[in-house]
Write a protein that binds this DNA or RNA. Structure first.
Lengths: 189, 189
DNA sequence: ACGGAAATGTTTACTTAGTAAACATTATTA
DNA sequence: TAATAATGTTTACTAAGTAAACATTTCCGT
């Protein structure tokens, strides 16, 4: 009710997150967010320098969200289950995933912490691959790591696209239901 | 000079294509395109129903552009060279690639020919994979095909992203210079 | 407790962008 | 050649991001 709201910043982020999750980042606009928070259109600018700053904040949340799930995996779980987690995250949170891994026009150099977050997950993957193929050269391990990364993210893209187009073939259904098997069969064979 | 320009539609597409290629789809806006064509802001709407229609047109061009190059590959060229072509296309025409394969908010069902174009290339890939692993089941061939598609598109995403971030590691340099070898080593091994 | 500075919210207003509607001109065709 | 269709222009509306000036509240040092 008061002129000053406590935690307005957090509420704005929360509201934006919900919209983005349910509708996509394109649907997030200041007027709507402000209105849902019961606040004037420009109140936002007391807490963020620009809309891109809000995007960056949502991306941070996205990484946290993704990592929360990954933390629950045991080290001795297979690389496949690790990859499957990524893929499921992408399929279950398509708009958040787009926000995080789409070609954002965001200038990442302005948000170095985001780069770090994104690198962190790749480094984890490299460790996993190293354990998976212990006798290989450093270079081969890096190559394989990039390959795994590419396969996983590429698959999310395909599944999302074809799902959206209503083109889900039997094979895709199978892949989606058996992500671990799929990964064993292809990427980790 | 006259009131009616011949080929205005084509000129608009051409101009939009150039902007998109050099700058990205986000930078394409009606006022700029119209101005470059020496025409009023809304002349556009005599030729397209909406900006999305223009996007669809550019995507069609993108597919043609991509396929022109692929046609030049011989059937007996390896699957790797086929994949490498895709990847190079993505790296050399990042903004066109984004337009074609990014998560466009475009409702594809409104542009069925685009879906067909995009499916055509996948079907070609399936044929290639079939030749590559002749004794496998239909299902395994489909699975592998999706995997190849995912790897190729995923790799473009990574290379683009890390290049943009200035994070190109030695390994990535190597991959980029030796795409065929990379693909043999990972996806087609 | 008090007076001003810092923080936070509001109002107003400007800018860019997509696009609809009404109008003007040229091209086409019966 | 007159009617009609096609194509271009003008005007204007709407949505969205955001800057600037103003208002209110909080907080801190005295």
């Amino acid at each position: 009710m008061g002129y000053h709201k406590k935690n307005l910043k957090e509420r704005l982020v929360e509201i934006a997150w919900e919209i983005c999750k349910a509708e996509s980042w394109q649907k997030v606009n200041m007027r709507l967010v402000a209105q849902k928070a019961g606040v004037s259109t420009t109140a936002f600018y007391r807490h963020f320098k620009s809309k891109n700053d809000l995007k960056a904040e949502l991306m941070r949340r996205g990484f946290q969200f993704l990592y929360e799930g990954i933390k629950e995996l045991n080290i001795d779980d297979s690389l496949s289950s690790y990859g499957a987690h990524y893929i499921r995250f992408g399929l279950e949170n398509p708009h958040i995933y787009d926000l995080m891994f789409g070609n954002s026009d965001l200038d990442m150099s302005l948000y170095p912490d985001l780069e770090a977050l994104s690198n962190a997950s790749f480094n984890g993957l490299v460790e996993g691959v190293k354990a998976f193929m212990p006798n290989k050269s450093e270079k081969d391990i890096m190559i394989k790591s990039y390959n795994v990364w590419a396969s996983v993210h590429g698959l999310v893209g395909i599944l999302r696209r074809l799902e959206w187009e209503g083109n889900k073939t039997e094979t895709l259904e199978w892949i989606e239901k058996n992500l671990e098997d799929y990964l064993e069969k292809t990427t980790f064979s």
